[in-house]
Write a protein that binds this DNA or RNA. Structure first.
Length: 803
RNA sequence: GCCGAAGUGGCGGAAUGGCAGACGCACAAGACUCAAAAUCUUGCGAGGGCAACUUCAUGCGGGUUCAAGUCCCGCCUUCGGCACCA
């Protein structure tokens, strides 16, 4: 028999699969559907090991589900309106369109070499006109339904890239693109009303099948909290009522301890109170200082509180009628709650530090030692301490008081119950070239006017100048033919919006387009969307869990509400791919210097061996370190599989192998479902060992074994199958097993005496306790001289004798 | 600080409360060979014993149980997320 020549054989099957279109998903097929989605490629260069860790198991799942009789949709495409193309353009002058076309061809070619069973007919890139036409269409719907608005606001801004960033794009206070510290600026910004969807997003999080730590990360990001919004009167030196201010608190039980009020420096109230504030210059000075602070400064100075007193304005605590001073400080954030807080130094560490620095009075209202630091909510609720200095509530357990004071405040009309969320509206424009143009114009006569849907796509014009101008306006502002246009409403001269959408826009709905990727009338046909439904299993990196996945939830909810899609949940299950780490334990990616190229490994060991090795290193959701160590074991295994052809004989499943095969089928099914392919391979190895011991495998056994292994090692199994059976393995069904074959007639069970292992006995399966005890006694495992106090027998598992 | 996940041989890693270390790597011995490679066979947590055997072992300390890597309580460490969110 010829040796296994993986180069020739793997190429042969890859070509055949492509030529025959073996992996096409069929719309409206009567079989049940299964939609496996792997996060599409960010078009930036070659594939790296991280891609394999994610995509190869997804491919195995898709192939497995096809054997199980599903009509599988397993698509791929390119997230191409991204930074790599724009950066390359700026650096080398290459046209982003060319960069994307080349990059896309490269990764698609490499995907084929990996034997990935994508439906190639459904490929697209987010920068394709036929695709971004519909991204723009969605923006128009958002605008028409009052979910997109333009507003001058404080936003994250990268001074180096000269562009606005969302919170999601500036996690950790660093620009996602260049790593520069992000600052806060006032700017005209397009926002999408994502905050309005907080509760619905939490619904998506609850319903999706996903690891706890991912759910928690999302809930954390959305940041729901319940509290009281309290209204306080503002008075001047002479106690004249000049205005009101609302504050938000989750600790209304501390309201008797309020000794000052703090406003965010950006709070609009300050401007309104201008005439009453005696030190307005000082206030303005502090505001300026805050704006220039980078996120890094704000965090690194957590322990060093800064602020300024607002002279001439005081607040009245409605519950105690106490008059307290007002401050501004940058530890209060304008974007959260009302941008103002009541400060209770004894029971909030930040307030404590601020009061200490500014010499403000402290009133303790809950038990505990407040001499050195605040006794905070976490501590006093846990200890269920008692109230102090709180009028009729003094002496009451704090939990009870929290409820009672809240009720009192609401009953007397001082405040209301309020739910807040940390998540903000999504700043949606970027001063960058390589993105979807925002399809609106500015008309002196009509204001902001959306384009007519029939005029989509609004094509991104060609240019050679990819940098913003000195004012920080988008590169598109330099393309006159693009900027100048006619108002769609009144026909007079108007100017286009020159900012583009963020690169998360195109990825916020792409799974829908796969259901109907070439539709020119709609983003996707409703009936097709209904057929394919939600993505059954979405695989990919965990780093997008608080960005892309939340944006995906948001857009899907919106599209559902306007009747464009049939379901609220984009995904039913999300599996987070573990990372492949290098020797130093760092994430292996394109940027990693000692990253190993998957193509190198394939060249040397073959695609099947490489795929199996990646599966075998760790389960899908677990991290692993890349190592060549162990790949010899895989090569060896494949070699033995290949040589099964030499010992195959006619016949069905034999009595000797029935149990082993049934066990393998059962184990492999649950491993495929949970992407625990390391143990799936191990089960295959165990079966193979048994076969080698017996020195033969029947045709039927070989057929079943090859099908089980095929989703992980598709090439070699296809070749052996064709050699032995003359047909294509892809036409087979996943093997089934008879429950009765899962148990052997005789089994060996351990025998414990007083909980310690003392021996083993072979018994008939399902023997009763007495029968087992007989065998045990016969073998002198237990001390015959001692009385038996107790016997614990778990049928077919274990016998424990207490003497 | 808060939230989440995890901690098992020389290594990657297995174990619905029921034989800890499956499977693989590495290592060692043997077979084949003039020799090597490849392949095959066997061994392989630590200590003690010639041996049958025995003691100790799943980050640390307690507990529940006939039985704990697994469940409970209290710590330690590592990784991940959020972080002046009132």
């Amino acid at each position: 028999m010829a040796v296994y020549d993986f180069k020739t054989i793997e190429k042969k099957w890859q070509d055949r699969w492509e030529k025959d279109g073996r992996f096409k998903a069929i719309d409206f097929d009567p079989r049940p559907k299964y939609y496996v989605l792997y996060e599409f490629y960010n078009i930036s260069g070659k594939l790296h090991m991280g891609h394999l860790k994610g995509t190869v198991p997804a491919d195995a799942l898709a192939r497995y589900k096809r054997f199980k009789g599903y009509n599988v949709l397993f698509p791929i495409g390119g997230d191409s309106f991204g930074l790599p193309a724009e950066n390359a353009a700026i650096k080398t002058g290459i046209d982003p369109h060319d960069f994307v076309a080349n990059g896309f061809n490269l990764v698609m070619g490499q995907s084929k070499q990996l034997g990935l069973s994508f439906d190639w007919d459904r490929c697209f890139c987010t920068s394709d006109e036929e695709y971004y036409k519909w991204t723009q269409w969605i923006f128009l719907q958002l605008f028409k339904h009052d979910k997109a608005y333009k507003k001058n606001g404080t936003v994250n801004f990268c001074p180096k890239c000269q562009t606005v960033l969302s919170n999601e794009d500036s996690q950790g206070g660093k620009c996602d693109r260049c790593g520069t510290d992000v600052i806060q600026v006032q700017r005209d910004v397009w926002f999408l009303k994502m905050k309005e969807y907080s509760e619905k997003l939490l619904g998506n999080v609850d319903r999706i099948n996903m690891a706890d730590y991912l759910k928690e990360a999302q809930r954390n990001w959305i940041g729901k909290s319940e509290g009281i919004q309290l209204k306080l009167k503002l008075v001047d030196d002479k106690d004249n009522h000049i205005d009101d201010i609302e504050i938000y608190t989750t600790c209304i039980e501390t309201v008797y301890g309020v000794t000052f009020i703090v406003l965010a420096p950006e709070n609009e109230k300050l401007e309104k109170l201008k005439d009453h504030i005696k030190n307005y210059d000082e206030i303005v000075e502090y505001q300026k200082k805050t704006t220039l602070k980078t996120e890094f400064d704000r965090i690194s100075q957590v322990k060093d509180k800064s602020g300024a007193k607002v002279e001439g304005v005081y607040a009245i605590n409605p519950i105690t009628n106490k008059k307290v001073p007002v401050y501004i400080a940058d530890f209060v954030l304008n974007g959260y709650g009302t941008g103002a807080v009541m400060a209770v130094p004894c029971h909030d560490q930040r307030d404590y530090e601020f009061a200490e620095k500014f010499g403000i009075e402290m009133i303790q209202v809950i038990d505990g030692d407040c001499s050195k630091q605040a006794v905070e909510k976490y501590d006093y609720l846990e200890a269920n301490s008692k109230m102090l200095n709180s009028a009729e509530f003094s002496g009451m357990p704090v939990r009870e008081a929290k409820k009672k004071i809240g009720e009192m405040v609401v009953a007397k009309g001082y405040g209301k119950v309020q739910t807040n969320y940390k998540m903000q509206d999504w700043p949606f424009n970027r001063q960058r070239y390589w993105g979807e143009p925002i399809p609106v114009v500015f008309c002196d006569n009509c204001g902001i006017v959306p384009l007519d849907e029939k005029d989509l796509p609004l094509v991104l014009p060609a240019t050679k100048d990819y940098l913003p101008n000195e004012k920080g306006d988008s590169p598109l502002s330099k393309v006159e033919s693009f900027v100048n246009c006619k108002c769609p409403k009144c026909g007079r001269d108007a100017k286009r919006e020159t900012d583009t959408m963020p690169n998360w826009a195109g990825s916020s709905w792409y799974w829908l387009r796969y259901c109907d990727p070439h539709n020119s009338e709609k983003l996707a046909d409703f009936e097709k969307l209904k057929y394919w439904g939600s993505v059954d299993c979405y695989t990919g990196g965990t780093e997008h869990i608080t960005r892309h996945v939340l944006y995906a939830f948001f857009w899907q909810n919106f599209l559902y509400e306007i009747g464009a899609v049939p379901t609220r949940d984009p995904f039913l299950r999300k599996m987070g791919s573990g990372l492949i780490l290098d020797d130093e334990g760092k994430k292996m990616s394109k940027s990693s210097k000692n990253g190993v190229s998957p193509m190198e490994v394939i060249e040397k060991y073959g695609t099947d061996a490489t795929r199996l090795h990646v599966h075998f290193l760790a389960a899908y959701e677990d991290n692993c370190k890349w190592t060549y160590s162990g790949i010899e074991g895989i090569v060896n295994f494949l070699d033995k599989v290949w040589k099964l052809q030499e010992i195959v004989k006619d016949g069905g499943v034999t009595k000797e192998h029935a149990y082993h095969l049934a066990t393998l089928i059962q184990k492999s099914e649950s491993d495929y479902e949970n992407l625990k392919l390391n143990t799936c391979i191990s089960a295959c190895m165990i079966f193979l060992k048994k076969i080698k011991e017996d020195g033969y495998i029947t045709k039927e056994e070989l057929k079943q074994f090859l099908v089980i292994l095929n989703p992980m090692a598709p090439h070699i199994t296809s070749e052996i199958f064709e050699n032995v059976f003359g047909t294509d393995i892809l036409d087979e069904k996943y093997p089934e097993y008879d429950e009765k074959n899962l148990v052997m007639s005789e089994i060996e069970i351990p025998v414990q005496v007083n909980g310690k292992l003392k021996g083993k006995v072979t018994i008939q399966t399902d023997s009763n306790q007495d029968a087992v005890l007989e065998v045990v006694k016969a073998q002198n495992i237990i001390d015959a001289n001692l009385p038996i106090k107790k016997v614990i027998y778990v049928p077919n598992k274990i016998l424990n004798v207490i003497q």
